[in-house]
Design a protein around this nucleic acid. Structure first.
Lengths: 198, 198
DNA sequence: AGTTTATGACTGACAATCAGTCATAAACAC
DNA sequence: GTGTTTATGACTGATTGTCAGTCATAAACT
């Protein structure tokens, strides 16, 4: 039998190299030739593992998104035990977006204008990936008797969309506290929030 | 005085030609050479009116978005006079998205995978462009005493984001009526809706 | 142990394509 | 006829994706 290689591992190696070069030079300014030089493989090898340049971009985005989602999930779990606490935790992460230092760096990179395609694809992964988390919070809240929602899945979509949209609204930093408060109010009203015992 | 040409008109001509070719072949598969051939001008002429290929893509998107926004605004105005009627009109347009036949065709085109960049840029224009319309509806509702909102601008962002997100949730056609009803409920709750006189 | 052979991984020069430039010409105004 | 703006299209440099062939490995067979 011939020489055998772990295809998945090889793919990851090349994707990791691509990721490094992307961060250095920006996605648009990176050529496939740059990537293979950084990965230490030949141009042809690249095309054994990725169909197109766009393919590797998507792979990198998926991997980044996955790590961010994991970080967010952890942060939410750490933010409290009740549904409302978890909701507020998720809101904070989404609005402020400071899970840790690398996340901030990543966010900066993603918002560079030449990396728009990357940003857009990421955003598209984001809300869907957070749906299960948000939905579980809503379900928990209903069970606790603080939320009043017939369709938790739909509620998760709606509220996450609202939160993300608010993040995009370009609110001046000075007005952020007020904006966050407003958005919180809208979300809780949408979820039919009533304090326990009232 | 030197030779004079209506620069804006010329730009529009080339953009219109670009738009035609984009619809035929997709944005990514269209070269600048294709555009100039269709417009009947030389390659150099193109660069007198657009800095880059991306520049003409943006121009086409802006023009499309503008027409769609205008159509939506008209549809909303025609849907009723009260804030709630207008809100429901806007919701219908956003969820069903059938302003007219050409809009459907356009939507198909925009959702072709190879036109993703176009779609993303369009989406980015969309919510911001609808904010004034939504905000005016909210303000009217507050004046009518049916909505209870402190910050109409923030409410507009939140609700529009929620509506758009719901549209992206990939609800099966069969479940759409229920989903629309759910989304409507979330929106009205977020806006603090109470029927007049209650 | 040594030789052959089968197989997939890998290579890098190369073809094809395309965005953007530039030297030159035409059209017009005065 | 001089000056200024618009227009031209051949050209360049760079980049993506391909392909004919090499290389390393291990099984199969002597």
């Amino acid at each position: 039998m011939p020489r055998v290689v772990d295809r998945t591992a090889r793919r990851s190696e090349i994707a990791a190299a691509a990721s490094r070069v992307f961060v250095e030079r920006g996605v648009a300014n990176t050529s496939v030739s740059d990537i293979v030089k950084s990965a230490g493989v030949a141009q042809g090898t690249f095309y054994l593992y990725f169909a197109t340049k766009d393919d590797v971009v998507m792979a990198v985005v998926d991997e980044m998104a996955g790590r961010m989602i994991a970080g967010i999930t952890a942060a939410v779990d750490a933010s409290g035990s009740t549904a409302v606490e978890k909701f507020l935790g998720l809101r904070d992460v989404l609005m402020a977006f400071d899970v840790d230092a690398t996340a901030v760096e990543l966010a900066d990179f993603m918002h560079r204008p030449e990396n728009r395609p990357l940003h857009d694809r990421m955003a598209e992964h984001f809300v869907p990936a957070l749906i299960p988390l948000m939905e579980s919070i809503v379900v928990q809240g209903v069970a606790e008797g603080v939320f009043n929602v017939r369709d938790p899945r739909a509620a998760a979509w709606f509220v996450l969309g609202g939160l993300q949209s608010a993040e995009l609204s370009g609110t001046p930093v000075a007005d952020m506290p007020a904006a966050i408060k407003a958005v919180t109010g809208f979300s809780l009203r949408a979820l039919g929030y009533t304090a326990v015992g009232s």
